[in-house]
Amino acid sequence: MKTDRTILAGIGCGVMAGAFWGVVFLGPRVLQAFSPLQLAASRYLLYGLVSGALILPRWRVLKAQVGRGEWLALLRLSLLGNIVYYIFLASAVHLAGVAATSLVIGLLPMAVTLVGSREQGAVPLRALILPLLLGVAGVSLIGVDLMGRPGVSDISIAERLLGLACAGGALACWTIYAVLNSRWLARLPAVSAHDWSLLTGVATGALALLLAVPAFLWHTTPHAVGDWALFWGVSAGVAIGASVVGNALWNRASRLLPLTLTGQMILFETLFALLYGFLWDARWPTVLEGLAILALIASVGLCVGRHHRRPEDAAPEAVAPEAA
């Protein structure tokens, strides 16, 4: 088990990561005239450029710690957790709609927690049943609220099924990414969480070059100069805030927390995304949204309580290996 101080520090990093990640959901709202592919390509290209600039002063030290195996892992993680995940997500939204996609992707915390329950030193799954059920209830309430709103477009059953399959693919991609990323962080204690995030950014930026051609050459819709200035400004803000800062905080949380608790931290992305959406729309949450928020907060709170270190856990701490 982790110590209370370590868990509190990890939770703090997880909350702040969610605060930065929640901004990502505002990008498409502000830049509705641009395609999701353009948003993804610009975000990850800028993520790569900023990461490369920030990592240059430390490159001599890092190149001795990161070899061919680590770079291959970074490329796999970047492809899985950023590029492929986003393609699945965008396709799911296009085919099944935002409501159904949000419902499936909102199961990420539960999926990561279930996988993490098999890690060495993890809290037993039976102790996490109530927090998991509350998390599922919160996400379900959000889905019911979205489905019940007017203006939901008519989508064929085949499109919905294919869209749900894409959403399931996105869910699987990020679940696997979270587990593998946590294990690599545990395997490389000499590489800081921030440096690992910057290295991930460099790898993602290189992969984003493959997205740039179809994103900006195949989509020929004309835009005013002011629209392009807003586009690159928002993309830069998302790249620096969500990708550089948010990912560094997430990596730190992943290193400090067991996977069963790390998974629950993803709920803060949903909570902050809802908060930013309410502020953008200048409205209060609906009754179902309010109940969903309370359920998600209770889910995280109970999960934290399950990970509270008991006095009898202190003795084996010195010899027990850290959960990845």
Rank of each mutant, 00 (worst) to 15 (best):
S78E: 02
E269H: 13
P36Y: 03
S156W: 08
L288S: 15
D145Y: 12
D145N: 09
Q120F: 07
F231C: 09
L79E: 02
L141A: 09
P214A: 01
V202M: 06
L108A: 00
G143D: 12
T113N: 08
A165T: 14
P258D: 00
L207W: 05
V152L: 10
W228Y: 04
W71D: 07
A208S: 14
W21E: 03
I297G: 03
V50Y: 07
I55H: 01
Y86W: 11
L185C: 07
R58I: 01
V50D: 06
A158K: 13
A239Y: 12
A253Y: 02
H308V: 15
P214I: 06
L210A: 07
A137F: 14
S243C: 09
L134P: 12
V61I: 13
G69K: 08
E289P: 15
S156F: 10
R252W: 09
G148I: 08
A64K: 15
P214Y: 06
V61W: 13
V98F: 14
W250L: 04
T220Y: 01
S117C: 02
V300S: 02
A215T: 04
L46Q: 04
Q65W: 13
N251H: 10
V234M: 12
M16E: 05
L249Q: 04
V304L: 08
S182E: 04
V244W: 12
L230D: 07
W71T: 01
I176Y: 10
G67F: 06
L230N: 08
R187A: 15
L256M: 10
A239Q: 10
L146W: 14
E317S: 11
Y177G: 05
G138S: 01
S42T: 13
M265N: 00
V136N: 10
G151M: 03
A282H: 10
F278R: 04
L294D: 08
A224H: 14
